[in-house]
Design a protein around this nucleic acid. Structure first.
Length: 706
DNA sequence: CTAGGGTTAG
């Protein structure tokens, strides 16, 4: 990244810029040829033909003609040959404002934002005064790179120059401020415009949508459609307004407006609508749109996949991936592959993940660090830490994300020391840890029981790494202290937070209250959680468990009635197991599952066998208010037990059973796994929401502490 | 020579 402050100071604006003088060649033929070539270039689209003309210009010495070269750059720009544009530009002896502008515009159009801004600075230093066109060309780069100071300074410059109103520049400014998170400034510019077109309106609507101001966005949209014709860009801006609000009413209202506008069949709009539904977890609605799309490109496929992954619909995700790979005109790019890997990672689909890894090698893009970090993450989440490590070591270039993935992987397996060691190693190699690195390493300390190490790192975040702790960091350190039984210390960390403590933080403390049977604090903390996230049933369940463990039946009863009286959403517990490359997902007591009768019979036998070894069902962890027998039945049909039973049924003796669960493992499942590993002589690798549990010969790697 | 849109790890 460039240093913006130094770039800023290198700008010296010239009030009366002077243009370099042109040397005009006096050979008459040149003029005729030049005119001829200019007219030819205007019509050329084919890169090969442009290159021929380019060669001709170089050979004939016409490259001294600025106008011709400008035209040549423009032709290259239209077929996106950015390298060639740059080459021509360097060749031009007398670069004028137009040459610079075409170059800068070529950079922004092709995503080279840093280069665009650098060239803009160089141009100004050469004494050229940017005009409206130059400024319009550089504004998008400033917005994309979020250079707020530079954006303001350019705005100032524009006003000082007294160029007056220019719809291009002002729309560009509105859009830039919208991207920079300054909707008020965007509105200020918008209001000062004497002429506005659809682009200006779209920019201000985008400004409100992009900054969470839904009502304003819809209001302006309604104002706009009275006076102007809207286009797909307007619709795109409008749909963005639904993001992050999580309000179904707004979502449906906006979808309605889109359909009414008649733009609902444009592919980008369809894609964005899908994204909107996925955002509020209405994956079925997203699938309806996807299904109806006449042309499904790789973006739509990838987005649909992330929807399945996000909603933990993992067998659908795997099925979707298979279809995606089998569809010929969908070319898997790195983004799609990352989506697939993330699906494999969260479902523990190792065989599928290996296929993707092989595909990455075949396509020849394994040097992509973004992709690489996903591969590391996939292996680590499929309990193949060694493979993760091996891949990591083979990478030529590793960025912070690659290190983070490996550190997090070690943490999940409980290898706190290794995680801290990697953390040190990355710094020795000069790679700066970022916020996520600290989350991974603190969480690793928690799972590895490295309390003092973790506290030391946490205390030095600002001084050593210039990182300010966010909610996640606090949650990690509360978890760390909570696990160690230091509930008071955890509480005082929360009291001294410089942020408003959120659900992650209180959730971590509540978990600790459960582990250490602290009812009093548990009640207080859950009260906060009910206020912060009243619709989440998980906290009611946890509180009820705390009461149950300490034998407080009154408390259990009152929590239960709270649970029933509120309209609550409980994330269903889902466990998946991979067998021969297929993912099987189970939900607790899912009686209409086609395999249920078979598995249920097997489970009955399994429970009998582990009871002989000493297993006692822990009915206290059942929060439903039912008879004891039914409680046992509920326990025996927890999703992880179904998945484990199915794994035992379908794999050869001695094979490791790997199960992935989306929530935390319950006490009863944890203890029964220990017995299963002993009785069946099998290693069980269970990944729950936070970490791996490796069961072997009656013991668990987490030391019964999670 | 000019401005605006969709997917991605931790």
């Amino acid at each position: 990244m460039i240093r913006f402050s130094s770039l800023m100071s290198s700008f010296t604006w010239r009030q009366n810029g002077t243009y370099p003088k042109f040397k005009i060649s006096h050979i008459p033929d040149f003029n005729a040829t030049e005119l001829w070539l200019v007219s030819i270039l205007q019509r050329l689209k084919e890169p090969k033909l442009i290159q021929q003309v380019h060669a001709h210009i170089v050979v004939s010495g016409l490259f001294r003609r600025t106008r011709l070269c400008n035209r040549l750059m423009n032709s290259y720009a239209s077929c996106r040959h950015i390298g060639e544009i740059n080459k021509v530009f360097c060749f031009i002896e007398h670069k004028n404002l137009v040459s610079w502008t075409i170059l800068i515009n070529g950079f922004t159009k092709n995503g080279f934002f840093v280069e665009a801004i650098e060239k803009f600075g160089q141009m100004v230093n050469c004494g050229l005064v940017p005009n409206a066109i130059t400024i319009s060309s550089v504004l998008p780069a400033i917005g994309k790179l979020r250079l707020i100071l530079m954006g303001k300074s350019l705005h100032c410059y524009w006003v000082k120059q007294e160029y007056g109103c220019n719809v291009f520049v002002q729309s560009g400014l509105v859009h830039m401020y919208s991207k920079l998170g300054c909707p008020i400034a965007a509105r200020y510019v918008f209001d000062s415009m004497s002429e506005r077109n659809a682009v200006s309106w779209n920019a201000i609507i985008f400004g409100y949508s992009n900054n969470g101001m839904v009502e304003e966005a819809i209001g302006l949209f309604n104002l706009m459609r009275r006076s102007l014709l809207m286009d797909t860009f307007t619709i795109m801006s409008l749909v963005s307004a639904a993001f992050g609000v999580g309000d179904l009413k707004i979502v449906t209202q906006i979808h309605g407006l889109v359909v009414k506008s008649g733009h609902d069949k444009s592919q980008p709009v369809e894609t964005r609508l899908m994204e909107m539904y996925i955002d509020v977890n209405f994956v079925d609605d997203a699938y309806c749109i996807f299904f109806e799309m006449s042309v499904k490109d790789v973006v739509a496929w990838t987005l649909m996949l992330t929807g399945f992954v996000k909603s933990a619909n993992l067998s659908m995700a795997v099925e979707h991936v298979n279809q995606m790979m089998a569809t010929e005109d969908v070319e898997l790019d790195s983004v799609a592959l990352i989506g697939i890997l993330s699906g494999c990672s969260s479902s523990g689909a190792l065989q599928q993940g290996r296929r993707v890894h092989a595909l990455v090698i075949k396509i020849g893009i394994e040097s992509d660090t973004f992709l690489g970090s996903s591969i590391i993450d996939m292996y680590a989440n499929c309990a193949k830490l060694g493979d993760a490590r091996r891949f990591f070591e083979g990478m030529a270039v590793k960025d912070a994300a690659c290190w983070n993935a490996l550190i997090a992987g070690n943490g999940m397996h409980g290898y706190g020391n290794d995680a801290v060691h990697l953390f040190q190693e990355m710094q020795d190699l000069g790679i700066d840890p970022n916020e996520s690195t600290l989350v991974s390493v603190l969480s690793a300390c928690g799972h590895g029981g490295l309390v003092e190490q973790g506290l030391y790192i946490f205390d030095n975040m600002v001084a050593r790494w210039n990182l300010f702790p966010n909610q996640k960091h606090y949650a990690c350190v509360v978890d760390l202290l909570g696990r160690a039984g230091r509930l008071n210390d955890a509480y005082s960390v929360i009291s001294n937070m410089h942020l408003q403590p959120g659900v992650d933080v209180y959730g971590a403390l509540l978990g600790a209250c459960k582990a250490h049977g602290n009812i009093e604090l548990g009640v207080e903390v859950s009260q906060r959680l009910f206020e912060l996230k009243p619709e989440d049933a998980g906290y009611y369940v946890l509180l009820s468990n705390i009461y149950a463990l300490s034998g407080n039946l009154e408390g259990v009863k009152s929590t239960r009635s709270l649970l029933r009286s509120t309209a609550l959403k409980k994330d269903p517990g889902l466990s998946s197991v991979e067998i021969n490359g297929a993912i099987y997902t189970f939900m607790a007591s899912e009686k209409d599952h086609p395999l249920y009768p078979e598995i249920s019979r097997f489970l009955k036998d399994l429970i009998f066998r582990i009871q002989e070894e000493g297993y006692v069902p822990d009915t206290k962890s059942v929060y439903q208010d039912v008879a004891e027998d039914l409680k046992k039945d509920i326990l025996y049909h927890h999703s992880e037990k179904l998945a484990i039973a199915f794994g035992l049924m379908r794999t050869k003796p001695g094979a490791i059973i790997r199960v992935t669960k989306n929530l935390r493992a319950c006490n009863d499942c944890h203890s029964s796994c220990k017995y299963i590993s002993k009785v069946f002589g099998r290693a069980l690798v269970i990944k729950d929401k936070n970490r791996f549990h490796v069961f072997h010969g009656g013991n668990c790697s987490c030391g019964d502490y999670w």
